[in-house]
Design a protein around this nucleic acid. Structure first.
Length: 451
DNA sequence: TTTTGAGTTGTTCGA
DNA sequence: GTCGAACAACTCAAA
């Protein structure tokens, strides 16, 4: 009997279109393993952990129950497992995140000492980070030229189905208990992912360019949790997109994910620190009053309906509409003057689709600390954004029952209602016009000091 | 090396 | 209500 090879699942919880798995299967019988890494498990947040557990259960079913689940630091866990089953190689999909790269270096050297080879194949992206550069060989910092270059570079077609001989090891291999969560999780596994993908590809792509901006309707793909865990690979979706405007808009959203992965790959520190370092000098509000305002934001009680609706959706669903993510982020940073990293952490605690690169850089874009060139005076007005993208208040009424009875005219700014603000709904925590001015002043001080 | 055109998602003001 | 200009001038990418 040939020696088994280990396949280490990470952010690629699928069987279809799996080049790294195909490479493992080409060597013989495969032991599929997932390592519950304490360094990632704890910080993931209960919602994401719960979705991960379900995704692993689905994966295990598609492997006829052969998935091995081990606990502990990956280097130690994999070394022990390789020893016990006599595997000479460990295959995995390459990870480009700051922690993942460091972890894989360590795993590689620990395994090498036992004569076990770590082989990294493929990536969670259509185009692996680092493979596209500008004409002068530097990483792109602006999206549009990156997008052009990314499309010109192109990507592989999805792989045809390959046979895998899964090897079962003596267990028991228990998945961790699924954390009890209040949110309704998306259907897990490749079947659930493809049901969602087909629904979107069949009926959602056409109107995507316009409807993706309207939080009151189901206009987005809702595929982010699957992309996060690699239940779907982006090239599988790209393979179904034509040249229509909606398809191009969706392709560009997929590319944003890759652009930010590339930025983080180039600048691992930018997960937690300002990409534009001089912006770290921004004056921030801290202390009791700032904490009180942060709590109002986190609890959906700022008195600005679009902000509160978004935060309530985040806590209730573990997901927030993209347009509203920008609005609530802008409000925390520019109306409350609170550090973007605090908001980013809160998002990561709740999001089922929480992805470090996209989350950190989405926040940095809003905060004006990121790769964007001139976001100086770009401060979202929570009332005009609400009127523009949720004119009929469908989204607001769904999430804020206290104000559901208000007419369209005043629902976006309840304090303007002549009969008085509704009982049970708070007055605005700050005055947007005042805080907008304050933010511009603070930016101006940084700019002046820099000059 | 220098130059040139362009840059996710905005807001406000005044005509 | 709608529309264009100003915001303030910076950095990036490519020619």
């Amino acid at each position: 009997m040939s020696t088994p090879t280990l396949f280490w699942f990470r952010r690629d919880l699928r069987i279809a279109d799996q080049p790294a798995l195909a490479a493992a299967a080409a060597e013989g019988p495969v032991v599929g393993v997932f390592v519950i890494d304490p360094a990632l498990w704890g910080p993931a947040g209960a919602n994401r952990r719960a979705f991960l557990v379900r995704s692993l259960e689905a994966l295990d079913r598609s492997m006829h129950g052969s998935l091995v689940v081990v606990d502990g630091p990956p280097a130690k866990a994999l070394a022990e497992l390789a020893d016990s089953c006599g595997a000479g190689t460990v295959h995995a999909t390459e990870d480009f995140g700051p922690y993942g790269r460091q972890r894989d270096d360590e795993v590689r050297s620990v395994l090498a000492r036992r004569g076990v080879d770590l082989r990294l194949v493929d990536s969670p992206y259509a185009v692996p980070p680092g493979s596209i550069t500008t004409g002068s060989g530097t990483p792109y910092k602006v999206f549009t030229p990156f997008f052009r270059s990314w499309k010109a570079h192109g990507w592989a077609d999805p792989l045809p189905e390959i046979p895998v001989e899964w090897l079962e090891l003596d267990g028991p291999w228990a998945l961790p208990d699924q954390p009890p969560v209040a949110v309704q999780l998306p259907p897990a596994g490749e079947a659930g992912a493809w049901a969602a993908a087909e629904r979107f590809l069949d009926t959602g792509v056409d109107g995507y360019a316009a409807s993706r901006d309207l939080p009151g309707i189901e206009g987005t793909s809702r595929l982010s949790p699957y992309l996060k865990w690699g239940v779907l690979h982006p090239r599988q979706l790209l393979d179904h997109l034509d040249d229509s405007p909606g398809a191009e808009a969706f392709r560009s959203e997929l590319c944003w994910r890759e652009f930010y992965a590339q930025v983080l790959y180039d600048r691992p520190d930018s997960a937690r620190h300002a990409y534009v370092s001089r912006m770290a000098a921004m004056e921030l509000d801290e202390g009791e009053e700032a904490d009180r305002r942060f709590e109002a934001w986190a609890n959906g009680r700022t008195g600005y309906p679009i902000v509160d609706a978004g935060m309530r959706q985040l806590v209730a669903e573990g997901w927030m509409h993209n347009r509203v993510r920008m609005i609530v982020a802008s409000f925390l940073v520019k109306d409350l003057h609170i550090d973007w990293t605090r908001g980013a952490r809160f998002f990561m605690d709740h999001l089922v689709d929480g992805d470090l690169a996209s989350n950190s850089h989405g926040w940095q874009w809003v905060a004006g600390t990121g790769t964007d060139a001139s976001p100086y005076f770009r401060i979202f007005n929570p009332v005009s954004q609400s009127k523009k993208f949720d004119g009929e208040g469908r989204y607001l009424r769904r999430w804020i029952p206290e104000i559901a009875h208000l007419p369209d005219r005043s629902i976006h700014a309840p304090w303007t209602e002549r009969t008085g603000a509704p009982a049970g709904y708070p007055p605005p925590v700050v005055d947007h016009d005042v805080e907008r001015r304050e933010s511009l002043d603070r930016y101006e001080r940084i700019r002046r000091d820099w000059a």
